[in-house]
Amino acid sequence: MNNSVSGNIIRFLALVLVQVLIFNHVNFLGYINPYIYILFIAFFPVKNNRAILIFLSFLIGLSIDMFLDSGGIHAAASVFVAYIRPVILKPSFGTMYEHQSVRFSAIDFGSKVTYIAFLVFVHHFVLFSLEIFSITKILLILQKTLFSSIFTILLSVIISVIFSRDTK
């Protein structure tokens, strides 16, 4: 238990720092940035308390907001994704989720990618809707969501492959 708590704390801090110091300065093609801190929410252990996940997501989003001066957009998107995570877990993992036996270190590649892709799309859509905050610019929102999502999904999958513990 202690081990997993300290592991989560280290992951939290590492993802915030990597996000604000490296991945926010990518600015691919001028404006495309990946938001990889969402991996913290994606790979938070399933059997842990959901309330803790929601609260920690709020904290990680708020820390990112503090560094980026973006108000509360990251906090809102993270909390939203953390709350609807079970809805995404179900179609991605099927029966494994219903038996409460999803272990992120032992799932096959395909379902991992679909799971991350769903999560990232929802997160980015909420994020950019709140950032741009105008219904008349819906095309700009969708454009940013699409491009940033592709970038985030690619990087997230790569990172999760590199840092996954057991090699199958």
């Binding site: 929601i54 708020l62 907001d65 973006s70 509360g72 909390v79």
Partner: peptide, 25 residues
């Protein structure tokens, strides 16, 4: 809990969209 935290974030967001209003973050 979700509603509360989401509401707080939205308040911060709205504040950040109005000039010279962002207070805490």
């Amino acid at each position: 809990l979700f509603l509360l935290l989401f509401f707080v974030s939205i308040v911060f967001t709205i504040q950040s969209h109005s000039y010279h209003k962002s207070k805490f973050i």
